[in-house]
């Protein structure tokens, strides 16, 4: 046992050996992670909102067309939500290649990120809409509001806290996904931690990557929580 202690000590000190850290690479990787996260969050937000709306509207409508559309969308949403992210990336490689002409770099991570998170967010949006008071919708209809007005003036504003907290949760898991995508070659902090930190045995780089990712996550959580608190007047 005595021989193990010095080893542990050296591991510990390795984590804080910042001389091995290339700060330029860290900065580059952080920018890539932020780039992937913000673009995917923005796309997931709009796509998820649309899908969620589609799910909600087709489900309460009792025409045959709506029912079929609902079944199809719900099926696809469930499929994409269930595929483990790491497999989805690999699965989508041919698609990404056709779409972007390459399979590495931050852009190449986007299709998989969006495909996996949008269905998840769509479900959150749908359940948010379902929580909107039916009576308020009826009140709007009694004033002569059209379907579109009911969506934009009642459903969205009345479920906004759910929409915001939903995108916060989604954004946080997207940060995690970008790290995974990074390992496969999309760049970013996950890539840095794996290539520079693990493969070159520089634990300090891994530690730095971890800390930066935590900071990003906490920032997103803080912005989300503050936003919800500000708008929620219930």
């Amino acid at each position: 046992m005595p021989s193990k202690l010095p080893v542990l000590g050296s591991v510990f000190s390795d984590y804080f050996d910042f001389s091995t850290v290339s700060w330029i690479k860290v900065w580059e990787a952080t920018k890539e992670t932020l780039y992937m996260t913000s673009l995917s969050v923005a796309s997931v937000f709009f796509l998820g909102l649309l899908l969620g709306l589609l799910l909600y509207e087709t489900q309460k409508n009792d025409s045959v067309g709506a029912l079929i559309l609902y079944k199809v969308v719900a099926f696809l949403v469930n499929i994409f939500r269930s595929i483990p992210f790491i497999i989805l990336i690999v699965l989508l490689i041919p698609f990404t290649k056709t779409l972007l002409g390459k399979i590495t770099g931050p852009e190449a991570g986007l299709p998989a990120l969006i495909f996996s998170a949008a269905p998840f967010y769509a479900r959150l949006v749908e359940s948010g809409f379902r929580e909107v008071d039916r009576g308020v919708v009826e009140a709007a209809e009694s004033m002569g509001a059209s379907k579109w007005e009911v969506i934009t003036k009642v459903y969205i504003p009345e479920s906004l806290p759910n929409i915001i907290s939903g995108i916060t949760v989604t954004a946080i898991s997207l940060v995690g996904y970008t790290a995974m995508a990074g390992v496969i070659g999309a760049g970013g902090l996950g890539n840095l931690a794996y290539l520079e930190g693990f493969q070159r045995s520089r634990p300090a780089v891994t530690l730095i990557s971890t800390v930066i990712i935590l900071i990003i996550v906490f920032t997103i959580q803080f912005i989300g929580d503050t936003g919800v608190r500000k708008i929620d007047k219930r």
């Binding site: 009576g135 009140a139 002569g144 504003p157 009345e158 007047k233």
Partner: peptide
Amino acid sequence: RQSIGMIFQHFNLLWS
């Protein structure tokens, strides 16, 4: 409907 107002038991106001 714009010329027919309606009020409700649970008021149905928009909380937002």
